[in-house]
Computed example of a mutant assay.
Amino acid sequence: MLNAAIEMAFVLVGAAQVLNLYRLIRGPDMTDRILALDTLGINVIALLVLFGMRTATTAYFEVALLLALLGFVGTVALCKFLLRGDIIE
């Protein structure tokens, strides 16, 4: 039963990635593209966690945590650049 739920989650997260990729390419403005990139990173983290559950390995959880930290810092840097034109004041 758990394997079927994990497989269904893989399919649904994959569909969410396709929709985020569409928004990333066709976004009307830059803020939509930044949000789509952030959401795409969250979906990649979800796939890593699902793959870690499927293989019962803890290494994927650590990689997902590092990717979450980098994604947060990257999103903050992109938003700051969009608002002010520079990252470091």
Rank of each mutant, 00 (worst) to 15 (best):
70 L>I: 00
65 L>T: 06
35 L>E: 12
69 L>G: 10
61 F>V: 11
78 L>S: 03
83 L>P: 09
77 A>I: 15
40 L>Y: 14
45 I>H: 05
77 A>Y: 14
39 T>W: 14
78 L>Q: 06
55 T>G: 01
81 F>C: 05
46 A>M: 09
80 K>M: 10
82 L>W: 14
41 G>W: 06
58 T>Q: 06
55 T>I: 13
73 V>C: 06
57 T>W: 10
58 T>H: 07
82 L>G: 02
48 L>G: 11
67 L>P: 01
55 T>Q: 15
70 L>T: 01
82 L>E: 03
76 V>W: 05
44 V>K: 13
45 I>W: 09
49 V>F: 07
36 A>L: 13
38 D>Q: 15
34 I>Q: 10
66 L>W: 06
56 A>Y: 08
34 I>Y: 12
48 L>V: 06
76 V>E: 00
54 R>G: 08
34 I>S: 14
78 L>T: 04
69 L>V: 11
78 L>A: 07
40 L>G: 05
56 A>M: 06
67 L>N: 01
71 G>W: 03
42 I>S: 10
73 V>G: 08
46 A>C: 15
49 V>C: 14
38 D>G: 12
32 D>Y: 15
77 A>C: 07
36 A>R: 12
35 L>Q: 13
43 N>V: 09
52 G>T: 04
74 G>F: 01
39 T>N: 12
34 I>F: 08
72 F>W: 07
55 T>R: 08
48 L>M: 12
47 L>C: 07
50 L>P: 00
70 L>A: 05
50 L>S: 01
40 L>Q: 08
76 V>R: 05
74 G>K: 00
82 L>I: 05
59 A>I: 05
40 L>A: 13
69 L>Q: 03
42 I>P: 00
75 T>D: 06
50 L>I: 05
71 G>T: 02
59 A>P: 00
35 L>T: 15
79 C>E: 08
72 F>S: 05
81 F>V: 08
78 L>F: 11
65 L>E: 01
34 I>T: 08
51 F>T: 11
34 I>D: 07
